[in-house]
Write a protein that binds this DNA or RNA. Sequence first.
DNA 1: TTGTATGCGTTATCAA
DNA 2: TTGATAACGCATACAA
Lengths: 339, 339
Amino acid sequence: MPAKIVDVAREAGVSVGTVSKALNDRGQLKPHTRAHVRAVAERLGFRPNDLAQSLLRGRSFTIGLISSDRFGRFSIPLLEGIEEALDPERIAVFLCKPTDDPEHERRHVAALLAKRVDGIIVTARRTDPRRPLDLGREVLPVLYAYARVEDDAATCLLPDDFGGGHLAGQHLARLGRRAIAHITGPDRFDAVRQRRDGLRAAMREAGLPWREELVLSGPWSESWGREAVTRLLAERRRFDALFCGSDQIARGAVDALREHGKAVPGDVAVVGFDNWEIVAAETRPPLTSIDPDLMELGRQAGLRLLAMIGGESQPGTTTLPCRLVVRQSCGAAETRTAA
Amino acid sequence: MPAKIVDVAREAGVSVGTVSKALNDRGQLKPHTRAHVRAVAERLGFRPNDLAQSLLRGRSFTIGLISSDRFGRFSIPLLEGIEEALDPERIAVFLCKPTDDPEHERRHVAALLAKRVDGIIVTARRTDPRRPLDLGREVLPVLYAYARVEDDAATCLLPDDFGGGHLAGQHLARLGRRAIAHITGPDRFDAVRQRRDGLRAAMREAGLPWREELVLSGPWSESWGREAVTRLLAERRRFDALFCGSDQIARGAVDALREHGKAVPGDVAVVGFDNWEIVAAETRPPLTSIDPDLMELGRQAGLRLLAMIGGESQPGTTTLPCRLVVRQSCGAAETRTAA
DNA sequence: TTGTATGCGTTATCAA
DNA sequence: TTGATAACGCATACAA
């Protein structure tokens, strides 16, 4: 059994109150006593029991993390960011097995509430709306990170997909590309529509015409990227640039372009999305890509939840800027990482 | 403030002891009283405070998860497995920001000990030895999952890399391949050596000669896979099969083979390692691969930690079998998933 | 069948 | 300057 405060008290020949004061720098204690108690505590390896402290304070210095979808590669940077923000505050994170099932979710929430977490961060794989977390009659700070929710009073943090698409279009336009094709994911994804609209806005600003026939929606896969490029070429569409809805799609597209004898970036400049290092960097040539900066999103999520726990409520949806990461698929040497 | 047991007691017109008994099915209570108390508790949304319970029981029903390396794609299935094992036991998981720094790690351990976790699972990215977790004088069940430690008394769970290599060699040999090349990761990785030795053992069993010139070590990257194949072909090495140390390497190798006019699996059968769906399935042709079954490893880790918490100590290193996942890169239609 | 009292480990208040 | 004691919320042994 770990040493408790009474053990320290007995060993040091003082009362528990004195020990508490000595270790927490409270009250007025003779310096000698303080030092002595500390030495004894150190020697005994005393470590205050957080459970007792939390019970007393009514705060657990703990938050819960719930995911409404399987953990995936998006969760990792998000997680890292969240922990980075919480770590200095000495707040620990309870991880809940991701689930799509409302019943499981309810059980997770119940468990978190029973553990008296100070707040909850909800994460999702998609940026499409989900139902709000059901807290019953309990009231507790809840923040949705990389998740949108059907409730205007909710606090949501999302990457700025529109801005990301805009950034891609702007980059390509500035490099002198005129005909930008767009191969992307399923249209039912909010992110797909946002990125597309961002691209369109950037093109309009650059005075470039929008051509529906250059926009192709399909699955989030490499093979779709290949298939879409093949189709564009078969249809003899003319395009000198390609913005892809994901790095995986871009990877397939670049492979297909190369296999059809098109040079990247010579004939076609390509911008991907996600900046998934392992895909973007291994593509030939390495992909210029839009980075949704999920780690920063996680960090902001942690900081905002902290603020909410502190009493500041900040309802509404906030989007965080994406970054342009330049590699070699656009032929630009510039190293802008603009917002 | 959430309702507490006294609130329920007052509202139900009974004492706290009665409430406790009613809700926990203890003691002898008039059925009517029990029902009444339950109804009141339900109405008030009463939820016992785990902090108080844990303090009383001396157990927190909570474990800590520490990683000595950044979270990566390997942690995800591991995590899912761990949670799957712990979920039914209603045990929550504290996640600690992964770190390589012993000082940070010490702080994490201190935090977990202060929270009175019932046990700790340590994870690493590599299967190479790490220093044991420093618990000070505390004693607590610790399990190393996907991590090896320099301490024979420690409990370690690892994928059977040797078995995985053996499985790959056996599969290729059974398909009639005679000259198996091996493109793999850096030799300093224990996993690399194990997988290689497993391959060698399988080849010996099949009566196939081992040729050092067909074994190439390099970085864990696609481009290394391409480079290695290019080198083998340039040196005019003859091989009709290829076992790669990772799916990424295999992907690069397959791309290079195709680009050099070699058919897969026609001219060369290829087996990868990791069964990283997103890589293996998108390779042309889709990769047959060895799956280290990390989710199952995580599940076992959770179950064993549970056993250790229950009092059974089970020191030593245990390896869990890998599975062969057949796709199309070997031309085998058989669907063996042997151990 | 139900109520009361004690303890879990800590901090804070007040008395000494 | 230090010590005793009451919380925090719950379960449980024992008294009624």
